[in-house]
């Protein structure tokens, strides 16, 4: 093993900054921070090559706690800042940290456009279905009827499904994971890092103070198996404590079926994260508790050229054809005349 390799092997501790972490005790963000350090340490990328860019909100304090380059920007704009950074420095590993309010409400436009361009950005959306930093208003992902200070009679706007939105913008990598499922979380972050293009990851994250237990159905050991479905590429959609339930397609709609009584594994929908069309992934993104188990895992992972690669190719092509530009030539690019 060469010296260089040894130097490049980071430990999670190497990625911890000297700043005191100030999330509330019991916040799901602690787990995401810990798993992020674990995931990045194993990538073999030098620390100085990581950049974390965030917006505003509890989740957006994240960059302060990573000993990498970091930018805690303004509300909703992290994908735009990351876009500019990545355009001039495609060699960097750029991570956007956002939340349901930051990414889907005030910053919804940037999120959509970063995704559709397929910039090589890793966008991690901490979804706690609430505004935490402003002390508990309903968010764009809050379920209908959520009672908060700003919705005392229950929220009346239909919640956004983050993954449906990402798929609608033609995301090339879409995944969902849970703050408390630390192994799955680490693996998902690693998969996101390995993807070339925009990787969009929704993390169900518990807000201990303002929305405690909102994902309990998906995290509680006694109910979890019946309420979530772990996606595996090429495998039928099976779930349940006894692995006896599955998802079958009935026309264009998914339905929950019990295996047996004439229904076999072969009748179930088979997960294909590489499908060219995002239709099935979209359908999975629409499956919502309590009518359906909610899918966890990689919904979609396909290849498409990144924006920066295409731009750089355009630049390389024009340079190959016409050579690097000189100012003399540029200044004289319109007709000129000489005054004696």
């Amino acid at each position: 093993m060469s010296t260089m390799t040894v130097l490049n092997m980071l430990t999670p501790k190497d990625l911890a900054s000297d700043q005191e972490v100030r999330w509330c005790p019991g916040c799901g963000d602690y787990s995401i921070l810990a798993q992020m350090k674990k995931a990045l340490a194993g990538l073999g990328i030098p620390r100085e090559k990581f950049v974390f860019i965030s917006g505003i909100g509890c989740s957006s304090r994240f960059p302060y706690y990573m000993n990498t380059y970091g930018f805690h920007s303004i509300h909703g704009r992290a994908p735009a800042i990351a876009t500019g950074l990545k355009l001039v420095r495609p060699d960097l590993s750029v991570w956007v940290i956002t939340g349901d309010g930051d990414g889907l409400s005030i910053g919804g436009n940037h999120l959509i456009h970063a995704i559709r361009r397929n910039m090589d950005l890793k966008i991690i959306l901490f979804n706690n279905e609430i505004y935490g930093l402003t002390k508990g208003q309903y968010s764009p992902t809050s379920r209908l009827g959520t009672r908060t200070k700003s919705s005392p009679l229950g929220s009346i706007d239909t919640p956004l499904r983050p993954l449906s939105l990402a798929l609608g913008a033609d995301a090339t990598f879409v995944a969902r994971t849970l703050d408390v499922d630390i192994n799955h979380l680490t693996e998902t972050l690693k998969r996101a890092a390995a993807h070339k293009g925009t990787a969009f990851v929704e993390v169900y994250q518990n807000c201990k103070i303002f929305n405690d237990g909102v994902f309990e159905y998906a995290t509680d050991k006694s109910t979890k198996a019946d309420n979530v479905l772990y996606l595996q590429h090429g495998r039928p959609l099976v779930f349940g404590k006894d692995r006896n339930k599955g998802i079958r397609l009935n026309g264009l709609n998914p339905e929950v079926v019990e295996l047996g009584n004439g229904i076999a594994l072969d009748d179930l929908l088979v997960h294909d994260e590489k499908a060219e069309e995002p239709s099935l992934a979209y359908l999975l993104s629409r499956m919502v508790y309590p009518d359906f188990p909610e899918c966890i895992g990689v919904f979609r992972c396909v290849e498409r050229p990144t924006y920066e690669d295409v731009l750089n190719k355009q630049i390389d092509d024009v340079l190959a054809k016409r050579g690097a530009g000189k100012l003399e030539e540029l200044f004289a690019s319109d007709e000129t005349w000489v005054v004696e």
């Binding site: 860019i53 800042i81 876009t83 500019g84 001039v88």
Partner: peptide
């Protein structure tokens, strides 16, 4: 850019990156 804010955001990102 997709809007005016994204445009200035990208310029800020580029400046942070040394461009």
């Amino acid at each position: 850019a997709e809007d005016e804010i994204a445009a200035v955001g990208a310029a800020i990102g580029a400046a942070f990156a040394g461009a």
